[in-house]
Amino acid sequence: MAERRDERLGRRRLHLRLRFLAGESTGSYVTRLAARNHLPVEGMLRSMGTGPMLPVEPQYTEMYLSRYARERLANLAGHPLAEMQKRLVGLRDEFLMPSDAKDDWEWPWDARAGYIVQACSLCAAQRGTRSPAWLILPDPWHVCLRHRRWTDNSRSTQHPYIDLSSLPDVIRAQQRLNRLGKRLGPAARWVFADACSILVRSNYLEDPGRTEEWAPLATQLGEHRVRPLAQLSRLSLLTRDLAWLEVRRLSGELGRAGYREWLDRATRRHGFAFREPLKMWHSQHPPLGRGIPELFGDQPPPSSVVQRVTGHELPSCLAAAGDLSCLPWLRLPNTMERLFL
């Protein structure tokens, strides 16, 4: 670092602490922490090191810190560094700035990984903020089951969220995905990614505005924004069916008979439009002579072992579905990044 730092900066924590918000971006947390203590963000940044004093806009991108600034932020927030890294994904080592960077923070035009998604305002209010808070997530949407709200990477001030009270299928779909995530552990993410790819290949509800159920919402918000919402129920069912096979395969319990029967059963359940992509996925996931049941435990095996056996890498916390699928088709149903700026 060319400029000499004042090592006294950031040693004493701020007077008021801030409650964590699950999935929050570093940029959102920093701006909320400053507001909580009635400080301008620029003033707090001066206690974290040296860097550009540009307007902070956490709704557009993520904030990345140097190792030095990360330590100072933990001091200011009054939490152990390990706790900060657990709560804020952007503070983990994989997202730190290079050691030879001239500044202690940066706000690049695009987040290096993940999507900036608006947090549920009711959840944010319960944690002491009335201004919008922002999450950094691997998918461009978030379902708040507690308050039945759908948020996404929209920056709409007129419609910052979609009320799910009258859309129980979406609620059930997210609950189904949550249960699968707990059961499959790391494998849940690549199974979900494959289900996304199969869904897109089948052209399922690509134009939700043409259906009676989704036309009013698509007219109000636009088809691109409504599409993943409309597709989530089918996506969760696909994920469940892929998971049935994958759990047994990775546990070493999938027999030849069960393997053969799965394709016909899944095709009947989802329809003929899904047969081709389901068949391709099925052919790439045959029974294993010896599974890796350790994958479902608290300490998964090394990534090299997982990749050799399954063909998938262990996903990082913000890995996009399009980077995880073993199928050659499109990414997420909502394929446009920064769509609603």
Rank of each mutant, 00 (worst) to 15 (best):
V226F: 03
R72S: 11
P315H: 01
R275S: 09
S233N: 15
H15L: 15
R148V: 13
R269K: 15
D207V: 12
L288N: 01
P168M: 08
L21C: 06
R67C: 13
P168N: 06
V306I: 14
T50N: 09
G291I: 02
M336F: 09
V41R: 05
G297Q: 03
G258I: 01
L16F: 09
V305I: 15
S197A: 14
D169F: 10
P286R: 00
P132Q: 03
A35Y: 02
R308M: 09
R12S: 11
A2D: 07
R290E: 12
A101V: 08
A82Y: 08
L229K: 02
A243P: 01
R265E: 06
R260Q: 10
S233K: 11
M44G: 06
L65P: 10
R275T: 10
C120T: 05
Q299L: 15
R32F: 03
H79K: 13
E313V: 11
L229A: 10
S283C: 00
L33A: 05
V30C: 08
D103P: 07
T211S: 14
W262F: 07
R183A: 12
L242K: 03
F272V: 15
C120A: 05
R12Q: 11
A113V: 01
M53E: 13
R13A: 15
L76R: 02
V191P: 00
T129W: 01
